[in-house]
Simulated assay, not measured.
Amino acid sequence: MSKKLSIVEDTIQKYGNCESLISIDPNFHEISISLFIKDNIATVWSFSHKKGIDQRIEQIRDQLIHLGGMTPIPGTHNQAQFPNGEMYKRPLKFLIRQAVEKPADFRHPAGPIRIKDLRSPLTIEIIPQEVSGCCVYEVTTIGEHKTAEIRKRAIVQGLVRYGDMEKVEPTKAIFPNGYRRDELVRIVLPYARNITGTQDMLEADSMRGQMTTGTLGFSPPV
């Protein structure tokens, strides 16, 4: 067994499956970054040996906290989990992308969860509501257009598909266990409004980052 293959297998055994691979980190020497998951703990990892890599990994992990509402694993610089120990694998793929590709000081805008619709002149707003101890997210629209109801239902489908959410009514969805996870809704909403485009993007990512020992977050030591 080659040394490179042994390192990859040891990493998988320690940190679990590689659920996401960002092939180029535009903010740090264009190295590749992987996200592993084991026992609902997410680990940010790279095989690069570039100077400052530990600090960069910690920056990315901290962005999982700031942008995704995760909490750090004590005593680590590269691990985080969701507050109640649950896991949302699909939205985590979009979260790690933003954590790597956005500047380290990037933050979500404050205020309502809103975004301009791509298929109408409407603005989409997601309103969290407490119902029987659960947080229900209702998709609403600002403005008038004949497709408003269709767009609301379509975006709920996008939240279900890419956010690990469950539809409870045609225009409402919840996370499993009913937890409130506004940060994840902000992350997923841009993708939920454009299911076709998002699927094309994910398929392209899959082609670039096939899980082989040559691409599994591996950057040759430098």
Rank of each mutant, 00 (worst) to 15 (best):
P26H: 09
L64Y: 11
Y162T: 03
I115T: 14
F47K: 07
F175D: 02
A110C: 12
V8A: 13
P83M: 14
T212R: 03
V168Y: 07
L118S: 07
K146H: 14
H29R: 08
F82P: 02
K116T: 01
K3N: 08
M70W: 00
R107L: 15
C135M: 13
V131C: 04
G158F: 05
I73V: 15
C134K: 13
L202I: 09
F28G: 00
K51L: 14
K38L: 03
I12H: 08
I41V: 15
V139Y: 01
K102N: 11
E138S: 15
K116E: 12
Y88G: 00
P26L: 12
R56D: 00
T147G: 01
P170C: 07
C135Q: 05
T141V: 15
E58Y: 09
E58S: 05
E19W: 13
P109S: 07
S20E: 05
I37A: 07
I96S: 05
G178Q: 11
P170F: 10
I124C: 14
I113C: 04
I155Y: 12
T198S: 03
P220S: 11
I155E: 07
A173K: 08
I53C: 04
Y191G: 00
Q79M: 12
T171E: 10
T213E: 11
P109D: 09
E30K: 10
I22D: 06
S34L: 10
M201W: 01
M201V: 01
K93F: 08
F36D: 00
E86L: 11
A80W: 05
Y179I: 15
S219P: 02
D117C: 15
T147H: 10
I96M: 09
P74T: 10
R107A: 09
N78R: 09
I31W: 02
Q63D: 05
Y15A: 03
I41K: 03
A80R: 00
A154M: 10
P170W: 04
K152A: 00
D200T: 13
R208S: 04
V8P: 07
P121Y: 13
M70F: 01
F175P: 06
L159M: 14
K50T: 02
L95W: 00
I96N: 01
E19P: 07
I150P: 04
D25W: 02
P72M: 01
